[in-house]
């Protein structure tokens, strides 16, 4: 296919009139609207190469060059995600690499998650105490803290820390592999780099983040217990009994859904940005940076959406 050099709308249709977009590897996607600008003299070339009918709108942007470019990026991101799901079910599966990634992403994050989870639980308890004391309700501290930690803090803190630690690392690693032609080297040695690099990392984050979130919640409650034990008369059994009294199945379920969604987002964004990194060291830096920023932004959007849905259900 000729390279995109700007933006206008091209509807590529197959013989049945459905829109198709010819991709690398010879596969076609039906129903896709491609906002893309090819040189006019190459339109005939596209028709010859793909054997599909094609019509083009006026030679101008659909909305504006910038918005069209964002829409195209969005299309490419969904295309990337679609490929992930196809590769997951297709196999063969890189199980060893998945285990290695789970170790790197999950196990090696434990110290950081332990520290932040513990401090969060303790600080949240300390800050909540004065307000509860005003109403003589300090006995509600375990319930309050556990609801806050299980429903919101544990998945959010874990995913934000992971977006910084894991997302940037995936973006930089894949970006640097792209720039140094290691991904091309895999491709020319008849190995599917997408399956080896992307599928394993996205699955590893999707599996590891929920486990880390659960671990973060436990550690956070331990931090809270320490503070409560230092200030009030309690023991660990009474504290946890009181803490879990108010936790429902929906709380745990929604926390799990959140953690899975955040894990998937961190892996997918990091891989997408790294895998498609531009050339040069600048491209690697940009991939690492945008992986973190975009992951965090999407995590907050998902947080709002999931909380809203949970509240409707509640």
């Amino acid at each position: 296919m000729p390279e995109c050099i700007g933006w206008h709308v091209i509807f590529i249709t197959n013989s049945r009139g459905r829109q198709t977009h010819k991709r690398e590897g010879g596969q076609s996607v039906c129903g896709a609207v491609v906002a893309c600008h090819f040189p006019e003299n190459q339109v005939q070339t596209i028709r010859t190469l793909t054997g599909v009918r094609m019509s083009s709108s006026a030679n101008k942007p659909v909305i504006s060059k910038k918005i069209d470019s964002h829409l195209l990026s969005l299309y490419e991101a969904f295309h990337f995600m679609g490929r992930f799901f196809r590769e997951v079910v297709r196999g063969p599966f890189e199980f060893q690499e998945l285990v290695r990634q789970c170790y790197q992403i999950g196990y090696r994050s434990l110290p950081l998650i332990s520290l932040t989870g513990f401090i969060t639980g303790m600080v949240f308890t300390k800050q909540s105490r004065p307000s509860l004391m005003e109403f003589g309700a300090t006995s509600w501290l375990p319930s309050l803290v556990s609801i806050a930690i299980v429903r919101a803090l544990a998945p959010l803190i874990t995913s934000l820390i992971s977006a910084g630690r894991v997302g940037s690392s995936i973006g930089a690693e894949l970006g640097s592999m792209r720039v140094t032609e290691q991904i091309d080297a895999m491709e020319v040695s008849a190995v599917n780099p997408f399956r080896f690099l992307v599928v394993t990392r996205v699955l590893a984050t999707t599996i590891s983040i929920p486990i880390l979130s659960f671990y973060c919640a436990i550690v956070g409650l331990m931090g809270s217990f320490l503070d409560v034990a230092l200030n009030e008369e309690t023991n660990i059994v009474a504290f946890f009994e009181s803490a879990f009294e108010q936790i429902t199945f929906l709380d745990i379920g929604s926390a799990l859904v959140k953690a899975v969604a955040y894990g998937f987002t961190i892996g997918m964004v990091g891989c997408y940005k790294g895998y498609n990194a531009g050339q040069g060291t600048q491209g690697v830096g940009r991939a690492a940076n945008t992986s973190v920023v975009l992951s965090m932004f999407l995590i907050f959007l998902e947080e709002v959406a999931i909380v809203q849905v949970t509240n409707w259900i509640r």
């Binding site: 640097s176 592999m177 140094t180 032609e181 290691q182 091309d184 080297a185």
Partner: peptide
Amino acid sequence: FQNSALYD
């Protein structure tokens, strides 16, 4: 490859 492209 020009830069060998060994897997780091």
